[in-house]
Design a protein around this nucleic acid. Structure first.
Lengths: 159, 159
DNA sequence: TATTGTTATACTCTATAACTATA
DNA sequence: TATAGTTATAGAGTATAACAATA
């Protein structure tokens, strides 16, 4: 695929909304809107990422650092906060007591569903500021980004 | 625009890449990739947002908090770090010495251009894990997201 | 008094380095 | 020894509350 820095255009007047110049800048501002939506549930972006993983099934802590692209000590810090709020449950695995098994509590499952809903609705409300077909398209494009990310990580996984 | 939680599908096997279930979750993981790309320049996402604003022209600190959607004390913290690295320049405005005028240094302008390039290339390399037309489409969709964000903020601006 | 911005303090996320527990 | 995870510590970003400087 060829690539050009296509959307670096003329400067806009200062004080006029977010800075949207390149693909990276757009993504940077989009993620800020996600953080804003998550604040309704008093969740941070890292917490939401972890809850999203656990919503797909319980996971070992050992795998989380790699999936989150952070160090193990950062996983501990995030999990500590979620434990304190009763959103996740932590116990030693039987068979290998070095390993930690993590799973959502019922409250955690409720919160992540609420967060998914709130963030998706908020993103949809932003997309609604485009012409109808474009609004539908940009939301659908996020599904493709999800697929791209999955393929990307799959390609990087050691066999 | 109607909205449905369309891409919450079946759980995938644990340990299999990022969690990509809803629009919000995709955006959460995409922003992590941006953070990863920015780490090459030793930049954080908040720093990149500020540099992006200043790259459009110098700005008063008073406007930054609103544009960044953070409190004024957080602006001070981000700017302090950029000052220490010599990427921005801070001085009192003439005429109203309460106000602070901020602008990129030459080094700051160099770094933000390098960051734009690195992040955009990295996003393009992720999009390349889709069929060709889809890869082009998802990158172009970010331009539309940028327009949606601009319209969204414009609509919220007090007249 | 009102506005602009900083300082003090605390919490979260991040990392590195050192450590404990288990294998 | 090697692996899984935590603790100690430090830096960045965030907020609230209190403050200083300027208007």
């Amino acid at each position: 695929m060829t690539f050009s820095h296509a959307i670096v255009t003329s400067p806009r007047p200062p004080g006029d909304g977010p800075s949207v110049g390149t693909y990276g800048r757009v993504t940077a501002w989009l993620s800020k809107r996600v953080e804003f939506a998550l604040a309704q549930m008093d969740l941070t972006l890292p917490q939401y990422r972890v809850l999203g993983i656990l919503a797909e099934g319980s996971a070992a802590a050992s795998g989380l650092a790699g999936r989150l692209a952070v160090r193990p000590s950062s996983v501990t810090a995030i999990i500590d906060g979620l434990l304190a709020r009763g959103l996740v449950d932590r116990k030693h695995e039987e068979g290998d007591r070095r390993r930690i098994a993590l799973r959502l509590t019922d409250e955690g499952a409720r919160i992540v569903a609420e967060a998914d809903r709130a963030v998706d609705d908020y993103l949809a409300s932003i997309a609604a500021h485009l012409p109808d077909e474009d609004g539908v398209m940009v939301l659908r494009s996020l599904e493709l980004w999800g697929q791209a990310l999955a393929n990307f990580h799959q390609a990087r996984k050691p066999q």
